Computed example of a mutant assay.
Amino acid sequence: MLARIYRPAKTAMQSGKAKSRSWRLEFEPASARFVDPLMGWTGSTDMNGQVKLNFDTKEEAIEYAERHGIAFRLHEPQEPPLILKAYADNFATNRKVSWTH
């Protein structure tokens, strides 16, 4: 039973970073999914796939996994570089790109 600890990315519906600062512990699938022949739905016999635990910090998630004897894999997030822009940059005299309109 292997778990992964990661920080989820923000959804496409968000412009800010709300709900993306917490850390999540999820179990990796232990068995493959199957298709129900009658309805065509996907199913699984793995109940740990439904467990998603949220933690405030990475250390809390690691401590929980170690305390309960859960093997885990840690995925560190890749932070994009912060590019500061100002509205006044549109009118700068030393613009490197010409106006498009």
Rank of each mutant, 00 (worst) to 15 (best):
H101I: 01
E66Y: 03
Y64I: 01
D56F: 05
A30I: 06
L74H: 10
F55D: 01
T93H: 07
S31H: 14
P80W: 06
T57G: 08
H75G: 00
H101Q: 12
I70M: 06
D89I: 00
L84V: 02
M39V: 02
S44A: 08
G49A: 09
P77F: 06
N90W: 06
K52Q: 10
G49S: 07
A86K: 09
A32P: 02
G49R: 13
R33I: 05
L53V: 03
L53W: 08
W41N: 13
G40C: 03
T57K: 07
W41P: 00
W99Y: 15
E59P: 02
Q50M: 11
F72K: 02
S31G: 04
G69S: 09
A32G: 12
D89H: 08
G40E: 04
E60T: 03
N54F: 13
H68M: 04
V35S: 09
A32L: 12
F34Q: 08
Q78L: 13
T57S: 15
M39F: 13
L82V: 14
E28H: 02
A30C: 07
F27H: 02
A86R: 04
M47R: 12
T42N: 10
A86W: 02
N94Y: 05
F27I: 00
V35C: 07
K58F: 04
K52L: 04
N90Q: 08
E66C: 06
T45W: 10
M47Q: 11
A86F: 03
Q78A: 04
N90F: 14
D56P: 01
N48M: 12
H68K: 11
L38D: 13
E76F: 09
S44H: 08
R95Y: 04
E59D: 14
K58R: 15
F72N: 03
K52I: 03
T100H: 09
L53I: 10
S31W: 13
D56H: 14
R33T: 09
R73E: 14
Q78I: 14
F34W: 15
V97C: 04
D56C: 04
N90I: 00
M47P: 05
A61V: 02
N54A: 09
T45D: 12
L38N: 10
F55C: 00
S44T: 15
F34D: 04
F55A: 01
G40M: 00
D46S: 08
F34E: 08
P77I: 09
E76V: 06
W99H: 06
Q50E: 11
M39I: 07
E76L: 14
